[in-house]
Nucleic acid binder design. Structure first.
Lengths: 152, 152
DNA sequence: ATCATGTGATTGACATGTCAATCAGGAGGC
DNA sequence: GCCTCCTGATTGACATGTCAATCACATGAT
């Protein structure tokens, strides 16, 4: 009957705003917990998590960037800051002189240890506990549908 | 029977990651559309939208910050950049010499006009069209539940 | 070997965001 | 008036993020 509308209705727009603002508020809240529990930013945590799970607690810079889905230049800047704080180190790569290996430093491993349980607890308290099991399932489905649509 | 777990299960964690990463990916995708359609950032758009809807296309700086839910310092920095680009202007406030009034400039009004329809179309295409009506409703409920829980 | 081309990583310039400090002007008590 | 305290707004220092340019080395063709 009616042609497909090209613009969202007021209700659809309201849901969009709630969706995006809520996700942002959650991100901020979880970041704040992480920061106060362990003095790590979400970026620090992502890097340290990847290194902790890596063979020998070390990884090629490019592989690390791909693993956490970052641009290389972003990683390079972030590693510079993390290196200054003693959380990670950088070494030359044996098999490719262009390459750099990122190594988990002792302080980094310790900070990550300190961060992980409180962080997971925060995810549970702020996200999982806010939703009924049905809502949690729905959230997963919505994310999957959106992801499939955005990527394609 | 079992005590409440303090940490999320692997499934719960997976949903969390999908949720937060998808929201981020959507934010980036919508930003990119906005940027290429109108050379405006999401921050620019929020400011221009508020000014466009304001009486006389002008607003007190603090009111504007409260309206779009920004810290005052963030707004101040952003207005500085927008002023340099000629999108807005700043005038002294008549009733309070401390205050500043932010005014929509001609270039800002024009850029906003150019941005709004493509932006709404992008929201429809990337968000609304990705979801069934049931999923859209569920997304709204999930956001409401999370928001209520995070705020409290 | 040398040269062109591609790849790994860093860098610089800039936009964006936070926090704490500052600064100017209002508001009330005296 | 004058002093103190509160409030509106800006600023500076820094963390974070993007993009384009750069630089060094690897790789393959000749």
């Amino acid at each position: 009957m009616t042609r497909k509308r090209s613009l969202p209705t007021a209700d659809e727009l309201r849901v969009w705003r709630e969706y995006i603002e809520t996700a942002e508020a959650l991100r901020v809240a979880i970041s704040a917990r992480l920061q106060s529990d362990s003095a790590l930013s979400p970026g620090d945590y992502a890097v340290l998590l990847a290194l902790s799970e890596a063979e020998g607690h070390r990884m090629r810079s490019s592989d690390l960037a791909a693993h956490i889905n970052w641009q290389r230049s972003r990683l390079s800047h972030h590693l510079g800051r993390m290196e200054r704080r003693g959380l990670i180190g950088r070494e030359d790569c044996v098999t490719d002189s262009r390459g750099a290996e990122v190594v988990l430093a002792a302080a980094g491993a310790e900070a990550f240890q300190r961060a992980t349980v409180p962080h997971l607890r925060a995810v549970r308290e702020l996200f999982v506990d806010a939703l009924t099991p049905e809502q949690l399932g729905a959230a997963g489905e919505v994310a999957a549908a959106l992801r499939a649509h955005v990527i394609s």
